[in-house]
Design a protein around this nucleic acid. Structure first.
Lengths: 220, 220
DNA sequence: ACCTGAACACCGTTCAAGT
DNA sequence: ACCTGAACACCGTTCAAGT
């Protein structure tokens, strides 16, 4: 065929197909040849749009991060110098962040490596840090809070806790696991267990941070 | 050579070499052929000791989890029915857990998939859950705490937050990132930033959980 | 500019053959 | 039981060739 009059591929089409493949069959299923065949082109065609597979993966990752809502950070100034609204903003953002990642768990290991040079990831880091500083957090603490929130959210989106326990009851028969007698039932409640753990952890973190925020005011 | 009088390989030797390769060159560098050559044998030899590469990876993962200290959970009964010692136990365990994982960050994505049938991972889950229940936490909440602690620890060990920001100052020139002007310096303080974020998050989580534990007693 | 087939140096895994 | 080389169906990437 050689060059068609209207291109068969675009970065957007490639990224969308790659994400679908990763979601449905895992990160290992994404090969350039497999992806190309999914798009009805030959393997090397992809190299007209991305220099390497890593560059393609970067684009997939940034498209996922682009789904995270950052609008709650837009009006930090409106809360006044008190900045009392940061816990609500952090809560809303964490939920949106987790939802975006948990929709594509197979790509979380890649994304968790950090923002790199990906624009949406940098915008996210900028928004969180900026909001915390404008809310009165010292810059060093704002950095740590951005980091620890990412730890918690990526950890919770990386894999289901409940689904990590085999549903096969015999696994837990060994005398070594005296307290795991009911663990084979976890996988069946996968959604509620993981959701409950995330919400409990999020509220505990925010409570703990609020205690520290109050201490900032006491000793200025 | 065929069969030597004394075996060239053992599961232990293979696991140790695989972990070294993963630590030094990343998960992608672990191929059966490369690993075999590292051990001075031919590729297929490994299949006399592990059925598949996945089974080998499982053994590597469990060897890492085996390094986590669980001794702080051994004497829950000694604290009495009050169980006031669970925050200290959880803190010590989380630090040991993170240290074991952070020593081998490249394998954390595999390990974060859950315990599966790996004995050390199941022992760990059993010890945490058992201690929390014996400390007075209802079983459902104990499950969630085990989950959320794993979220936080795996997230913090998966990758350095600070190192995720390029040290190249030009990255942050774009007007899109008004608050990241100093972000290029993060990578230089990698250790302290990540350590500080982990400790801050851990203490915040424990404080938040202590608030909930106190509420258990109020409304029995 | 954008696609193709051929080619290179890799993969995980199977299997018959050797001791 | 435990190692080998040969083989199969895959990889990511390069490159000359086509329009």
């Amino acid at each position: 065929m050689a060059r068609p009059r209207t291109p068969l591929l675009s970065r957007e089409r490639i990224v969308a197909a790659a994400l679908r493949l990763i979601d449905e069959e895992g990160l290992d299923a994404l090969s350039t040849r497999r992806l190309a065949s999914e798009l009805s082109v030959s393997g090397p065609s992809l190299y007209n749009h991305f220099a390497t597979k890593d560059e393609l993966l970067d684009a997939v990752v940034d498209s996922v991060i682009g789904e995270v809502d950052l609008s709650m950070f837009g009006t930090a100034g409106a809360a006044g110098a008190g900045g009392g609204s940061w816990p609500e903003a952090l809560r809303d953002w964490a939920r949106s962040y987790r939802a975006a990642l948990a929709a594509h768990p197979n790509i979380v290991p890649v994304l968790a490596q950090g923002p790199g040079r990906r624009p949406n990831a940098l915008r996210l880091a900028d928004a969180v840090f900026g909001h915390l500083v404008e809310s009165g957090w010292p810059r060093g603490q704002a950095t740590r809070i951005g980091a620890l929130m990412r730890y918690f959210v990526t950890g919770s989106a990386l894999a289901s806790f409940a689904a990590g326990f085999p549903a096969d009851a015999e696994v837990y028969d060994a005398a070594d696991y005296p307290h795991l007698g009911e663990a084979h039932r976890l996988a069946g409640h996968r959604g509620t267990v993981d959701e409950g753990a995330f919400e409990t952890g999020l509220e505990a973190l925010l409570d703990g941070l609020a205690l520290r925020y109050a201490r900032l005011a006491e000793r200025p």
